[in-house]
């Protein structure tokens, strides 16, 4: 049941219109960060307020909603946002990727390929890829307008000179349709290749930083790299301890005080589905 004390999906209609206009401009200018008047939400900044506002503007009562936090459906952030929309929008919720029509995510893209009937909403902490290189908003805005992205390549080059390879492993910068450099949110660079040519609509919401940006389906997204140091989507070199998957992104879990550890799929739905289908890893009970 929808909680009658609130408007459908919590936000008032004028706020939703403002967010919806920002989403449309974001889709029309892929990778460009559209400023929006982010609202106070009943959760602290940094807990996905941007993603929540975008989801609230996008949801219809018929949607099936899924939330993942670093791939997991059962962590605090995911559980609380899921129940928030269950209560304020009356939507059906699910943990199954293929059943969901709107998926809000913190820092992962589901392993299962998304379809044209799905929308992926990212929670973004720092939307500006140049922010740690240039703290002034007035300057980074100018850099985007002039397509002046040399500084970003210098940063990647410094990685190479210091570590021998590009050490940036998450929030790895991408260039969208050959124009805007975009922060894909802190997804592991393992997920970067999925950003481009995705069938689903991808929306990015940064609440504290008051920015919304978007990738329409089938958009060209290229991870920045060098000819002699090409981009590489990396993951821990192990199979999943529970389901034995070789191709999925893994979390390292410390299991005792003696240095014991195991690697498990970060996408819990993917791992559960494989285990249910009979796949077993070496650490499976």
């Amino acid at each position: 049941m929808t909680d009658q004390d609130y408007n459908f999906a919590y936000l008032d209609e004028q706020t939703k219109r403002m967010i919806r206009r920002a989403i449309l401009k974001g889709l029309a200018i892929p990778g460009y960060q559209v400023p929006f008047a982010s609202r106070e939400m009943p959760m602290p900044y940094g807990w996905g307020t941007g993603g929540v506002q975008v989801s609230a503007a996008v949801l219809t009562p018929e949607d099936t909603f899924k939330v993942i936090d670093q791939g997991a459906d059962d962590t605090t952030n995911a559980v609380s946002i899921r129940s928030f929309f269950q209560r304020t929008a009356g939507v059906t919720t699910t943990t199954k990727t293929s059943d969901a029509s709107v998926i809000q995510t913190r820092h992962r893209i589901p392993e299962e390929a998304l379809t044209e009937d799905q929308i992926l909403v990212y929670q973004v902490p720092i939307p500006e890829p140049l922010r740690f290189l240039e703290p002034r908003e007035s300057e980074t805005r100018k850099m985007h307008s002039l397509e002046e992205y040399g500084l970003m390549h210098v940063k990647l080059y410094e990685d190479i000179s210091r570590h021998g390879h590009i050490a940036t492993s998450y929030a790895y910068p991408v260039k969208v349709e050959g124009r805007y450099v975009m922060d894909p949110s802190p997804i592991p660079k393992f997920d970067n290749p999925k950003l481009g040519d995705m069938a689903a609509i991808q929306l990015f919401g940064a609440g504290r930083e008051q920015r919304i940006y978007a990738l329409p389906p089938y958009t060209q997204v290229v991870s920045l790299d060098f000819e002699d140091h090409p981009f590489e989507a990396s993951k821990a070199d192990h199979p999943c301890g529970l389901c034995g998957a070789e191709e999925s992104y893994l979390d390292e879990v410390i299991v005792d005080d003696a240095g014991g550890r195991m690697f498990v799929c970060s996408d819990t739905d993917y791992c559960d589905a494989r285990q249910a289908a009979g796949y077993k890893g070496k650490d499976a009970a």
């Binding site: 939703k16 919806r20 989403i23 449309l24 889709l27 029309a28 503007a57 996008v58 219809t60 044209e116 609509i201 978007a214 329409p216 389906p217």
Partner: peptide, 10 residues
């Protein structure tokens, strides 16, 4: 809005 967004995205 979903109709408008789908149209703008596709």
């Amino acid at each position: 809005f979903r109709s408008v967004m789908e149209a703008m995205a596709r």
